[in-house]
Amino acid sequence: MTPTHGLPGPYRATGSASFVDFLAALHPERLPVAGEPAMQGAGALAPHGTTIVALRTDGGVVMAGDRRATMGNIIAQNDIEKVFAADEFSVIGIAGTAGLAVELVRLFQVELEHYEKIEGLPLSLDGKANRLATMLRGNLGMAMQGLAVVPLFGGYDEARGIGRIFSYDVTGGRYEEHDFYAVGSGSSFARGSLKKLFRRGASTDEAIATALEALYDAADDDSATGGPDMARGIYPVVATVDASGVHLLDDDELAPRVRHMVDARMTSPDGGTS
């Protein structure tokens, strides 16, 4: 990038409040989803992030993701973070090609903040979910080459006073989930677990416990999903969103909850009451 002196024409032109549109017009090569088709087989060489779960609570949303990234049969990373705050009132978790996913999250965060600064107001939750769909659609070419990213988006809808969850497919299809959802390689096992444990109107604490159980069950049956690593103190990333905003739980908050669950599994390895 050549350093810019002053503010060239495009910067001062009237235009949309979208940073993605601005970037695509001015520096398309900087988009994480640049049009150049990736080489066949790149999917096998790039690390993949795995399971993300999200569920609604009485006042918002809880989202959690395991910490493993895999490259074929190799564990590429054992402490990757796949759940992020998208802005003050929404969270995003991404499964799929890790490099692209992290870059897509970064762009999405800038997109939301940019809109808020230009317009003086944040986007509505539906607006945010739709922007994410548009950004994914731009990645369809890459997805067909094996570099798919599949996000899960959740947030607190300030206008309606509830938490909401949105799932996506690689073509940018956007679907609202009413109770819970999971994406990634271990998602079918996680969803099975959530189906049994989820309770409408659960408190945030209960929902966090449910999310941890679901990730544990996913790790139990899916080799690409990592369980909690008690020896190294690596726990799932857990984020909560409610009227007070996004909160990412720190290790001190997580350690006792994870330990409690793992202890229970010592006597009842499949969970539930034995």
């Binding site: 601005f22 520096h27 900087r30 800038v110 940019h114 600064k117």
Partner: peptide, 16 residues
Amino acid sequence: SLRVAGVRLADMRGYS
């Protein structure tokens, strides 16, 4: 128009 240009420049730099 200057404010918007500044936000764009800042976000472009921060992202790049």
